[in-house]
C-alpha cells in the first residue's frame, strides 16, 4: 500500500489518552479516514471510553456517544433508525467496542441488531482481555494467556470465542477480521463495510502493550505475527458469498514466534505451546490453509 495516497485528513485529535503504542487508537485513526465525516460513533465501556478524553474534551472530530457496556448495538439501532426517520439514511452509524463489550456483555444486543438487519457497522477492537479495568480475562482471551484473573494462564479447556462465525451465522451484509498491521487488508475491509448496506461487522485484532506485556514499539509487529503464525486469520464474508481468507503467507510461522514476543505467554512450557500449535494447525486445515 502506498501510504502517500492516503488522505491527510485526520478525525483523531492529538492528546488522546491511549497508552503509548495502543493499536486501538491507531485503528480508530484509520477507520475514520475510510468512514469519513458522515459518521457517528457509538461507544460502550472499553479502553476507548478513556482514550476519547474526559469532559469537556473529545478525541474525535465526528459525533460520539458514550453508552453503557452492554448496549452499543442497541443504541446504534436507535441512532440509525432515528437518522433514517430524519431523512439522513446515509450516515454511518458505527459501534466501536472492545472484546468485553462484544464477545461477552454486549453479545445479546449484537445478535439482536444483526438479526434485525440493522444498517450499522459494528467494529470490535479485540485486545483479548478487559484491559481498561486492568487485564482481566474475557471470552476473547486466548488459551494460555496470562491475565490478572487467569494468573497461571487461561486454561486450555477454553478456546477463544469464534466471533466471526457467530456473526456470520446471522447472515450479515458483511463480516470480516483484520488488523491495522496489514494496512491494505484493513483499508479494503473498511471500504467494503462502508459501502455495504445492512449489518456489518469488523473484528480487529488490536494489540495492547501493557496487557500483552510487549514493548510499545512491537505492537504492530505482534499483530503481524499473529497473522503470520495463523493464530489470527484475516478473512471476510460478503453477503451470501462463501468465507474468503484474505491473507495467506507463503508458510505459516510457528506460533512460538508470536508467543516469544509477549510477556503474557512467557510462562508457557513446550508441551502447552505444542497443544496450542496443534489447535492452530487444525483450524488452518479446516480453512484449507495447510
Amino acid at each position: 500500500m502506498d501510504f502517500r495516497e492516503i488522505a491527510n485528513v485526520e478525525y483523531l485529535n492529538q492528546g488522546d489518552f491511549a497508552c503509548p503504542g495502543c493499536a486501538a487508537g491507531l485503528s480508530m485513526r484509520h477507520a475514520l479516514k475510510v468512514l469519513g465525516d458522515e459518521t457517528v460513533i457509538v461507544m460502550p465501556a472499553s479502553c476507548w471510553s478513556i482514550i476519547a478524553g474526559g469532559l469537556p474534551t473529545t478525541a474525535l472530530q465526528v459525533p460520539l456517544m458514550h453508552v453503557p457496556f452492554a448496549t452499543a448495538a442497541a443504541v446504534a439501532s436507535g441512532v440509525k433508525n432515528a437518522f433514517r426517520e430524519k431523512g439522513e439514511p446515509k450516515k454511518n452509524v458505527v459501534c466501536w467496542a472492545g472484546d468485553g463489550g462484544t464477545f461477552d456483555i454486549g453479545l445479546q444486543a449484537i445478535s439482536g441488531a444483526a438479526e434485525r438487519r440493522e444498517d450499522i457497522i459494528y467494529v470490535c477492537y479485540d485486545n483479548e482481555a478487559y484491559m481498561n479495568t486492568g487485564i482481566q480475562r474475557s471470552s476473547a482471551t486466548p488459551p494460555g494467556a496470562w491475565t490478572t484473573t487467569t494468573p497461571t494462564g487461561n486454561p486450555l479447556i477454553f478456546e477463544k470465542k469464534d466471533m466471526f462465525n457467530i456473526i456470520a451465522s446471522h447472515n450479515p451484509a458483511y463480516v470480516a477480521t483484520t488488523t491495522i498491521a496489514f494496512p491494505d487488508d484493513f483499508y479494503a475491509k473498511f471500504e467494503k463495510a462502508k459501502n455495504a448496506k445492512g449489518f456489518r461487522f469488523i473484528h480487529l485484532l488490536s494489540s495492547c502493550p501493557p496487557g500483552w506485556r510487549i514493548d510499545s514499539k512491537d505492537s504492530v509487529s505482534a499483530m503481524r505475527l499473529a497473522v503470520e503464525t495463523g493464530i489470527f486469520v484475516m478473512m471476510e464474508k460478503e453477503g451470501e458469498q462463501e468465507i474468503k481468507v484474505t491473507y495467506k503467507p507463503e508458510k505459516f510461522k510457528p506460533v512460538r514466534e508470536y508467543f516469544k514476543l509477549q510477556g503474557r505467554y512467557k510462562h508457557l512450557d513446550e508441551e502447552t505451546i505444542n497443544v496450542i500449535q496443534e489447535r492452530i494447525n487444525k483450524r488452518l486445515k479446516k480453512l484449507n490453509l495447510l
Binding site: Q14, G15, F17, P20, A52, L55, P56, T57
Partner: peptide, 20 residues
C-alpha cells in the same frame, strides 16, 4: 455546560508528550 455532558473541545489540552 453544567447541564449537558457534552464535549466539543479537543483533547489537545492533554500534552501527552510529557508521558515520554
Amino acid at each position: 455546560i453544567k447541564k449537558f455532558p457534552i464535549s466539543i473541545t479537543t483533547t489537545e489540552v492533554n500534552l501527552t508528550g510529557s508521558w515520554r
